[in-house]
Design a protein around this nucleic acid. Structure first.
Lengths: 127, 127
DNA sequence: GCTTGCCTTCTCATTGATGAGAAGGTTTCA
DNA sequence: TGAAACCTTCTCATCAATGAGAAGGCAAGC
C-alpha cells in the first residue's frame, strides 16, 4: 500500500510516516516511480510506534527495541544476534519501562480511589 | 527550604523547579527578600512530577490531575469540589493512563520474553 | 489532453521540556 | 570590607515531535 492509505488506516499523518522513516522506524520499499510502498504489516507496526511514542518513549529508544517487539519468530531467536551489550540495553530498557508502568499505575489508582471515595461520600450523605 | 536545597534533594535543576512553578505545578511561598521557600512536602511533590513527566505526561495534564494524587486527606474528599466535568476529566485521564500502562506492559513483556527465549536457546545449545 | 488527486522532496514554524548564561541583589563568613 | 555562595529575573538556544506549505512529478477518469 502507499503512504496515503497507510495514513488513512492508521490515522497518522503522512508527514509523520515520513518522519518515522527518517528516524529509521519504518523502511518502506519504493515503487519504480519513487512512491513509498508499505507491506500490510506496516499498519500494525505504525500502531505500535504510536503507542510507544504516546507512552513517552523517544524515537531513539523505539528504534533500538523495536526489532525485538515483534511476534516471536525464529529469525531473531538465534543467540548470535544478541551481543552482551544489546542484552544489557534491552534489560535496562525493560527496567525503565517497568518504572513508568509502576508510576502510571500508582497514579491511575489514586485517581480512581479519589473518584470512588467521592462516590461513597455522596452515597453516605444521601445526596 | 530554598530552591537550591530542593534541587539538591531531588536532583532536579533549579531551572526546572522554576519552570514547574511557571507551569503551576509548584507554588512556593516567598521570603521577604523574594527567595522561594518550599515546604518539606515539596520534595515528594517534585519526585511525583518527575515520575509523571518521565512517564510521558505533559505538564498540562499533570497540573490538572495533581490535586487528586495526594494521600487521601479529607480536604479534597468533599463531593462539592468535584464538578461532573472534572469527574469526567479524571475518568478519561485514568483511562488514558491505563492505555499507556497496557502498551508499556505489553512491550516490556515482549522484551523480557525475547531475552528469556535467547537464554533458553543458549542453554539448550549447551553454549 | 486536462483536471484532480496523490505522491515526491524541501523548507520553515511551532510547541514542550530543557540547558545555559548574563546582570544584579542577598547572605554568610573571614 | 570583600569574597563566595546563594538567590532573583530575563533572555537566548536546543532538541524531539509535529504542523503546514510550496513546487513539482505521476496517474486515473472525463
Amino acid at each position: 500500500m502507499r503512504i496515503g492509505e497507510l495514513s488513512r488506516r492508521t490515522g497518522v499523518p503522512a508527514r509523520m510516516l515520513r518522519y518515522y522513516e527518517e528516524q529509521d522506524l519504518l523502511r518502506p520499499d519504493r515503487a519504480v516511480n519513487g512512491y513509498r510502498v508499505y507491506p500490510e504489516a506496516a499498519v500494525y507496526r505504525v500502531q505500535q510506534i504510536r503507542g510507544l511514542l504516546d507512552s513517552g518513549l523517544t524515537t531513539d529508544i523505539i528504534r533500538r527495541i523495536i526489532p525485538f517487539l515483534d511476534r516471536p519468530d525464529d529469525i531473531h531467536l538465534h543467540p548470535d544476534c544478541l551481543t552482551p551489550e544489546l542484552a544489557d540495553l534491552l534489560r535496562s530498557e525493560a527496567a525503565r519501562i517497568q518504572q513508568r508502568v509502576e508510576c502510571l499505575s500508582r497514579n491511575r489508582d489514586r485517581i480512581l480511589a479519589y473518584l470512588a471515595a467521592v462516590e461513597a461520600a455522596k452515597q453516605g450523605a444521601g445526596c
